[in-house]
């Protein structure tokens, strides 16, 4: 029953079944195109008796046989009342999903083997309470919510991610069997959510092309060994710590202080530094170093073919660098 668009059939064994599944996926894609916000309507909602519903129908059959064999009109009456209750339940089950809006909020980046977080916002769109909604991606955790008191709710899902690149969680399954459990009403929505998966950090002894600053084998420039060397006009990428704030306060133009060691420690994570290694390994090493610099509070820049990120640090910078590494060679930037 679960819908898993990522499941690719082995190319060798494209059976009629796989073809059927693909056809079905295409049909669902046409019917429910990806969107950041979805309001459920009859085009998107499917409904069918649940397993419990079939069991109920079996019970109804037994009741009907009892009524027939005992020629008992009240038994007929009760059997029919429950039959029509089943039919009425179709409308109520459907109404429980209909009009519900789901908004994609965010997806957090993650390293391979970790779990990403997807945040959704659920709005009931009206004053009627919604009960017993189950939401989840094929691989994610499942959430069970009711919207009774408040009109909306923010949900977080955890989902293990695969290798470097974009992680598409697939279609989100939203289902409910409210109010009687006899019918299952569901939809698959593609919220156009994808998470960035960074390269797997892989330690390398040193960063080739980077002058080792101490004998301990670490090639990281030591931030403390700064002999003041003079001023120069501020350029983007200069650390704010090196801005000559006092001069600025006196009315001079924005200037950076230059240190002797600074020029050398302006450190670049360079694609060419690991020449000869496979692409993924190169990216993994660069990722490792980016994290390492970040940990040591050093500025670092990134040079990849077609990508150049000036040195800097901080969360935003780190994310920029890691994303560039994550999406290297995949096209369709961040």
């Amino acid at each position: 029953m679960s819908y898993a668009p990522e499941q690719a059939a082995p190319a060798a064994a494209i059976s009629w079944r796989a073809r059927l599944q693909r056809r079905f996926r295409e049909w669902v894609n046409r019917r429910i195109p990806p969107a950041r916000s979805v309001t459920l309507d009859q085009k998107r909602i499917f409904i069918f008796p649940s397993r419990v519903g079939f069991f109920f129908l079996l019970c109804l059959t037994v009741m009907l046989l009892t009524a027939i064999n005992y020629e008992n009109n009240m038994s007929y009456g009760l059997t029919f009342l429950l039959t029509t209750l089943f039919i009425i339940a179709i409308l109520h089950t459907y109404a429980n999903l209909s009009g519900l809006s789901i908004h994609a909020v965010q997806a957090r980046p993650a390293f391979p083997g970790q779990q990403t977080e997807f945040d959704l916002r659920l709005e009931r769109g009206g004053s009627r309470p919604r009960f017993d909604l189950r939401l989840g991606w094929p691989d994610s955790t499942e959430q069970r919510v009711s919207l009774v008191e408040s009109g909306s709710d923010t949900l977080r899902f955890y989902c293990p991610v695969g290798e470097r690149g974009w992680y598409h969680p697939g279609r989100l399954l939203i289902e409910s069997t409210y109010p009687l459990g006899l019918l299952r009403c569901w939809t698959w929505v593609d919220l156009d959510l994808r998470a960035v998966v960074y390269p797997r950090p892989l330690a390398s002894p040193d960063l080739p092309g980077h002058a080792a600053a101490d004998a301990g084998g670490s090639a990281i420039p030591v931030a403390g060994s700064d002999d003041f060397d003079g001023f120069r006009d501020y350029r983007t990428g200069d650390s704010l710590r090196h801005v000559h704030w006092k001069g600025l306060a006196r009315g001079h133009s924005l200037q950076s202080k230059l240190y002797a060691a600074y020029a050398e420690s302006d450190c670049w994570l360079d694609w060419d530094a690991f020449a000869g290694l496979p692409v993924e390994q190169r990216l993994s090493h660069l990722c490792y170093w980016a994290l390492e610099f970040e940990r040591r509070q050093e500025d670092y820049g990134l040079r990849l073919p077609g990508v150049r990120i000036e040195p800097g640090r901080g969360d935003a910078h780190r994310e920029q660098v890691l994303s560039a590494l994550a999406l290297y060679g995949l096209g369709g930037g961040a």
């Binding site: 009109n73 029919f80 009342l81 039959t83 029509t84 039919i87 009425i88």
Partner: peptide
């Protein structure tokens, strides 16, 4: 509410 809605349908079937 659901039973009340089902009731008239039941009568017809009955």
């Amino acid at each position: 509410v659901m039973l009340a809605q089902a009731f008239p349908l039941m009568l017809v079937l009955f």
